[in-house]
Design a protein around this nucleic acid. Sequence first.
DNA 1: GATATTTGTTGTACGGATGAACTTATCGAG
DNA 2: CTCGATAAGTTCATCCGTACAACAAATATC
Lengths: 419, 419
Amino acid sequence: MKSTAARQGTLRELNLGLVLREVLDAAATHAPSPSRADVAAATGLTRATVSTLVDRLVAGGLLAECEPVATQRAGRPAVPLVPAGGTLVALGAEVNVDYLGVRALDLAGHVLAERVVEDDHRDSDPARVLRALAAVADDVLAETVGDPVAATAGEPVAPGGPRRVVGTALALPGLVARDAGTLLLAPNLGWREVDVAGVLADASEVFSAHPPTLANEADLAARAEARAQRREGAASFVYVSGEIGIGAALVLEGRVFGGRHGWAGELGHTLVADGRPLEQVAGQDAMVRAAGLEREAGVASLVAALAAGAPAAHEAVRAAGEALGAALANVVNTVDVSDVVLGGTYARLAEHLVEPVLAALRTHVLAAPWAPPTVGVARVGDIPALTGAALSVLDLVIADPSAWLDAPGAAAALPRLAP
Amino acid sequence: MKSTAARQGTLRELNLGLVLREVLDAAATHAPSPSRADVAAATGLTRATVSTLVDRLVAGGLLAECEPVATQRAGRPAVPLVPAGGTLVALGAEVNVDYLGVRALDLAGHVLAERVVEDDHRDSDPARVLRALAAVADDVLAETVGDPVAATAGEPVAPGGPRRVVGTALALPGLVARDAGTLLLAPNLGWREVDVAGVLADASEVFSAHPPTLANEADLAARAEARAQRREGAASFVYVSGEIGIGAALVLEGRVFGGRHGWAGELGHTLVADGRPLEQVAGQDAMVRAAGLEREAGVASLVAALAAGAPAAHEAVRAAGEALGAALANVVNTVDVSDVVLGGTYARLAEHLVEPVLAALRTHVLAAPWAPPTVGVARVGDIPALTGAALSVLDLVIADPSAWLDAPGAAAALPRLAP
DNA sequence: GATATTTGTTGTACGGATGAACTTATCGAG
DNA sequence: CTCGATAAGTTCATCCGTACAACAAATATC
C-alpha cells in the first residue's frame, strides 16, 4: 500500500475500479449480469453514484448494457451490465520447455483467439524460439483484429472491427527481471540473461508496440486459477505448477503474491530430505524415469502405466508425492496458507498424488490440527499461464479504468447487445 | 485490500492517517519534528489541507505542537509537530520460555514503563504464569497512570495525569488463534489450547478492560525491528528470532506478513537435511549441548566459550548456522525476500553465525546472483517482542485515527511542550 | 385499472481537497 | 532601524464526488 495523498480523484478512481470489477467478476464466474442496482447493493455505494460511474464506463467503452430482461418479479426490469467485449484485447504468451503459445482475451476474459505450438525447447537458441513466438503472436492478434497497425492506434470502434490492444505479458519457466524485460535464468530451457523484450520487439509488431511484461509461469498460471476459484470468494492457496520444472505460486485472498521481484515460489530448487533439489525427485522427468520409462515417452506414458497398474509407476508417483508434500509443508509452515492446488502435470496425476501429499502435509504442518490442509486439483483449463498472462494485463485496466476510457460520445452510438 | 465503497469519509480517514504516520515516523526515526509545511511537502497534500488535518489531530490529543524554533533561515519559524506523549498508552506483553514481561509505550513509541521477570516456564502451569503476567501488567500500567480504573474511563487529561489505554497485545512462542484469544500450541512451554485471554481477563484489570490481541513472538519482534529499520525506507526482510524455539517472520515493505491466521514463519519445525526439525539442530539448547555445555548454563556460557576459542563451541555454532542457512534459503526461495535479520539469541552469536548462514544462502538461493542475500543483526533493543506488541496496538490508532480523537476543545487548553 | 414494487434518474446538500490570496514571523541587506 | 525577501500558517471561494430524497419509468399482482 503506497502511502500517497488521497485526493478526490483517488476516490473516483477507486470506485470506478470497484464497479468495473464487480461486473467483470460476475462475468468471470458466470454469475448473472448485475444491474446498476445490484452493483450498488454489492458495493455499498448509492444507486445514484453507481449510475454515474456506470454511465462513464459505458460511454468509455469498458462496459455495455444489455436489453432489459423480464424478471418475473414486480418492478421496473433491470438493465444487465456486461464487459464490453468489442474494444479491448489482452495478449498472454508463454514459452515453456515443450511448447509455446499465445492467447488473446477480451475484457470479459473470453478467449478471442489462441495458438499453441509444441516443440522441444531444451537447450534451444533463445532468439530462434522468441522469433517463432513473435510470429505466433502477430498471427493470433490478426485473428482478432483486421489490421494490427490500425488496432494500436487507439481508435474506438464497433464490435467486430479492429480492437485496442491493452498490452502483452509473457510467462517463462524461470527467473525474470520484470521491469527490464530480461530473462535471468531458466534452467530447463538452458537460457540465461536473455533480453527477451528486446528480441520480441524486433521480431513482432505487437511486442514492439506493447512491450511484454515478463513473469514466472507458475505465478501467471496461479493468476488464472485464482480467477477460476473466485466463484466461492477470494481464496488463498499454494498453486503448484508441475511442468518440466516445478514452480509454485502463492495466492493470498485471490491475489498472486510474487514477492519483491516476482521470484517467490521457487519450489523446484528446494532441498529435500536427501539433499537433492525437489525437481530431481518429483519433477516430470524424474517420475517418468523412476517408473522405468523413457524420458521421451513423457507423462502420457506414465499415466498409461498407472492405469495399467504398473507397480513401479505407482511407487514412483507415491515417492514424488511424498517429497512434494514435505516441500509443500515447509511452504505452508512459512506462509500460513493451508490449501494446495495441483496444476500442470500434477493435475493429470492428481488421483495418485493427493494422498501422499496430504499425508506429508498432515504430519509436517504444525498448524494442521487447527487448519486442516487440503489438496485440490486446478480447475482452470489447458495452459493456464496463457490465460493468466492475459489476465495480468487486464488487471491494468481494472486498476486504472479511467486511463482506458474512450472519448465520450463515440461509444454511445453502439447498439445494445443481447443478454 | 478490502474492496469496499470509498465514501468521502474514507478520504479524510486516509489522509488523517497519512499525516499522523508522517509525524510518528519522524519521531520513531529520531528525525527532526516536521512542521505542517514539511508534512505537506512529504505527503503531497496542500498546506491548507494539512493544516486542517493537523488541527483536528492536535485538538483530539494525538499530536502536540512544540514551541516554534528559530531555523537560521529567513521566513516564519515552523511549529514542530510531535506525537502527544501524554494521552495514550499501549501495553505490550510477552510470555516466553525463560521470562515474561510487560512494556508500556506512548504514541511516540517511547517506553513509559516496563518490567521483566525471569523464570523458567518449561512445562509450567499456564494459569499460574498468566496470573503472574497479569500482576506485572497491572503494576506497569500503575507506573504510567495514577489510577488504572480512571484511566480506562476515557477521560482526556493533561500530561502527567492518568492516560487512556489504547489496548494490549501479548506475544507468545507458539501458534495462537488471534481472534479467539486462545493459545493453540506452544511446544516449548508445554502449553496447548489455553484460553489466555480468559485467564488474563479474570486476573487483571487492564486485560479485562482491554482483551489482549495474541500474536506470535517472532511476528511482534519483527514488527519492532521493522520500525527500527524504517530509517532507510520501508524494508523487506526475514526476521529470525532465536529464542529457545526458532521463529521467523516476514517483513514486506515495512509491514509484518502474518499469513491468514498469523501462523506464518514457523521455521523451527522445518525439516532439515537429516530429517530432524531445525529447532533440534540450531536451537539454543541444541547449540549449547553440541558445544559440550550444560543446558542450564545457557547462551551466556556459549558466548563465553566462543570468546575463549573453544573448538567445540565454534563447531557447534557453525553447524547450527549451516542448518539455519539452508532452512532460510528455502524461505528466501519461497517468498523472494533476500535480506535476513538475526534477532534474539542469534543476534548475540551473530559474529559467528553470519558467515555460515550467508554461505548457505549464496549456494542454495536460486536468485542469489541477481539479488545477493544479506545477513544482518537486529538493531532493536532487548526483548523486541514487547515493543512490537505495543506497536501493534498503536497501529490501531494510525489505521483509524478519528476513533481515538478526544472531544475537541478539551485538549486545546494543553500547554505547549518543549521541542 | 389501482396499487405495490423495483429500477434508474434528477436535483440539492454536504464534506473534503484545492488554489490563490493574505497574515504572521523571521532573516539579512542597506 | 527600516525595508524587502522568504517561508509558515490561515482564510475563503471553488470544485468535485458522493449522499439523500424525491421522482419517473416499467412491470407484476389483485
